Amino acid sequence: MSTEPESVRIEVAFAGGPIIAANVAPAGADALEHALASAAQGTHQLDTDDGRVTLVLGRVAYMKRFARDSKVGFGL
């Protein structure tokens, strides 16, 4: 039985200030981290829970990957 989550929460910030937050598959977050770490140029497509996003890699200031799902409110 795998303990890997179905999706992870990430934030991507762009030069100039805009930030997007999304839930993505762990493999999608890994692929984006790899593209950013390798200083790849061009674009990168990222499938999120809300649809596909195309990122211009040269405009990304940082990517934050949350360690665990954080929810507001009460729950078990």
Score class of each variant (00 low, 15 high):
Leu46Asn: 04
Ala37His: 06
Ala35Arg: 02
Gly75Arg: 04
Gly75Phe: 09
Ala15Trp: 11
Phe66Asp: 08
Ala27His: 09
Gly75Ile: 01
Leu46Trp: 09
Ala40His: 12
Gly73Pro: 00
Pro18Cys: 03
Leu55His: 04
Gln41Cys: 07
Gly51Trp: 02
Ala27Thr: 11
Ala27Asp: 08
Gly42Gln: 04
Leu46Gln: 03
Gln45Cys: 09
Asp30His: 03
Leu36Phe: 05
Phe74Glu: 07
Leu57Glu: 08
Glu6Thr: 15
Thr54His: 10
Gly42Phe: 06
Lys71Met: 07
Ala22Tyr: 05
Leu57Phe: 13
Ile19Trp: 00
Pro5Asp: 08
Ala21Asn: 01
Ala61Gln: 08
Leu32Gly: 00
Ala22Leu: 01
Arg52Thr: 15
Glu33Gly: 05
Ala15Asp: 13
Ser70Leu: 09
Ser7Trp: 15
Ser2Trp: 13
Met63Gly: 01
Pro5Tyr: 07
Thr3Phe: 15
Gln41Val: 14
Arg68Ser: 13
Leu36Asn: 01
Gly58Asp: 12
Leu46Tyr: 07
Asp49Ala: 13
Asp50Ile: 07
Asp30Arg: 04
Phe74Ala: 06
Leu57His: 12
Ala21Tyr: 02
His44Gly: 03
Arg52His: 07
Ile19Gln: 00
Thr43Cys: 05
Pro26Asn: 00
Ala67Leu: 08
Thr54Pro: 06
His34Cys: 02
Arg52Pro: 08
Thr43Ser: 10
Ala35His: 07
Leu57Pro: 09
Ser2Asn: 12
Phe14Val: 00
Gly51Arg: 00
Met1Leu: 12
Ala13Gly: 06
Met1Arg: 08
Ala22Asn: 03
Ser7Met: 12
Arg68Phe: 14
Ile20Cys: 01
Gly58Gln: 08
Glu6Met: 11
Val53Leu: 14
Ala27Asn: 07
Arg65Gln: 10
Pro26Cys: 01
Ala31Phe: 07
Arg9Lys: 13
Val8Asp: 13
Leu55Gly: 02
Ala39Thr: 08
Ala15Met: 07
Val56Pro: 09
Ala35Gln: 03
Ala39Asn: 13
Ser38Met: 08
Arg52Tyr: 05
Lys71Ile: 11
Ala15Gly: 11
Arg59Met: 05
Gln41Arg: 11
Glu11Met: 09
Ile19Val: 15
Ser38Trp: 03
Leu57Tyr: 10
Val8Glu: 12
Arg65Tyr: 06
Ser7Leu: 13
Gln41Ser: 14
Gly16Lys: 03
Ile20Glu: 03
Ala25Val: 05
Ala15His: 15
Ala13Trp: 00
